[in-house]
């Protein structure tokens, strides 16, 4: 008795097989964008696997975190490789989610009936950024410590709930060992749980509703429409891309390792060049450039409100966009992408 028939007797997997066999992926010039979600998923899997291995040796706490990371990279067999893969795949993870989000935006794949798929994707992007912010502090080095201090200071400028938010994030008045424990718990327990729930919802919706195709592609006559079976054609291609991605990460891990830096010392003054992770840079740079006061608001509060309102509008794009304003929305999207690129480059180069 084969494994398939053994499973069939118990779980009726034929229905799943039938579904997989029927599922088709549209083939056109934009098919390549369909792989971005899969790559993001692969990077998340890498995060989970390497994260679990790192947690075997990592010890949260102001007195132990930095030392344990040093121990991992210098004494534990292949510990360095796990840390490098974890750090590199974390950055690529956020990068590919951003890329995925913008390709979905520009191809208008969020339109009816996929509004909630977009919303769940946006929630996943926000969670990925919180993953990055909380993970950045864990090595407890100087750069991470002061970047977290600045980041939680900014959270303090949120109107009405700012000081409460800072207190909750820091687990006290200052960034301390208590903050580290809290961030570790958020990073390794709370976020993975929430992320997996939304990831499941996101994937189920994609499977149920199928792949979206751009409007121009929808108007192609049925006899000229090309498709490929999801299984095995698309899945095997996906796997091939994952292997290439793994190869790239291995290359980065060996030749561009992440520094551990100096251990955080709350009593020293902040070193020059403190900056957040690259995906927060455009917001950080904007806040730096804003004047101290704008109208009746403080510059920082104005910036936070601007990004807050902007984020909510972006989240609600599927519900706000009207077909007659398609070009306007696309132009806004192009403007946002350019703004993010320029401000990020400005933050690093100037």
């Amino acid at each position: 008795m084969s494994v398939t028939s053994w499973l069939q007797e118990r779980f009726d997997i034929a229905a799943v097989q039938k579904f997989a066999a029927k599922k088709q992926v549209p083939v056109f010039f934009g098919t390549v964008w369909y792989y971005l979600g899969g790559v993001s998923l692969f990077l998340f899997i890498l995060q989970v696997l390497t994260g679990i291995l790192l947690s075997l040796y990592y010890q949260p706490g102001a007195a132990t975190a930095y030392e344990s990371v040093k121990f991992i990279v210098s004494k534990v067999e292949f510990g360095w490789l796990m840390r490098e893969i974890h750090s590199w795949s974390a950055n690529l993870f956020v990068f590919f989610i951003f890329l995925h989000m913008f390709t979905v935006f520009f191809s208008k794949a969020y339109r009816k009936p996929r509004e909630l798929t977009w919303v769940s994707g946006m929630i996943l992007l926000a969670l990925a950024m919180v993953f990055g912010f909380s993970g950045y502090l864990l090595p407890w080095n100087e750069l991470a410590y002061f970047a977290t201090k600045v980041g939680t200071d900014i959270a303090g400028a949120v109107p009405f709930i700012g000081s409460f938010l800072t207190q909750v994030l820091r687990a006290g008045d200052e960034v301390s060992g208590a903050t580290l424990s809290r961030f570790y718990s958020i990073h390794t327990a709370i976020l993975p749980l929430v992320f997996i729930v939304f990831l499941g919802i996101h994937l189920i919706m994609i499977q149920v509703q199928g792949m979206s195709v751009p409007e121009a592609q929808e108007n192609v006559p049925p006899e000229k429409k090309k498709t490929m079976p999801f299984f095995p054609n698309f899945v095997v291609r996906d796997l091939m891309l994952w292997l290439i991605m793994l190869n790239v990460i291995a290359l980065l891990a060996v030749f561009f390792p992440w520094e551990i830096g100096l251990k955080a010392d709350p009593l020293t003054s902040a070193p020059a060049g403190i900056r957040p992770e690259w995906y927060f840079m455009f917001m950080f740079q904007t806040l730096k450039l804003l004047p101290a006061h704008l109208w009746f608001l403080e510059g920082e509060v104005f910036g936070i409100l601007m990004f807050g309102v902007g984020g909510i509008i972006w989240l609600l794009v599927p519900f706000l966009e009207k077909p007659k304003y398609t070009k306007l929305w696309t132009s806004v999207g192009v403007g946002i992408v350019l703004y993010m690129i320029v401000l990020t480059a400005w933050g690093y180069l100037v």
Binding site: R237, N247, A250, V254
Partner: peptide, 26 residues
Amino acid sequence: RRKGLFGASLIFSFLALLLYLKIKQV
């Protein structure tokens, strides 16, 4: 590590090639 990377790259590339051949075959 460099040698290990080279070895791993070979394996990954070989597997990717197998997948490519599988696609062609399918």
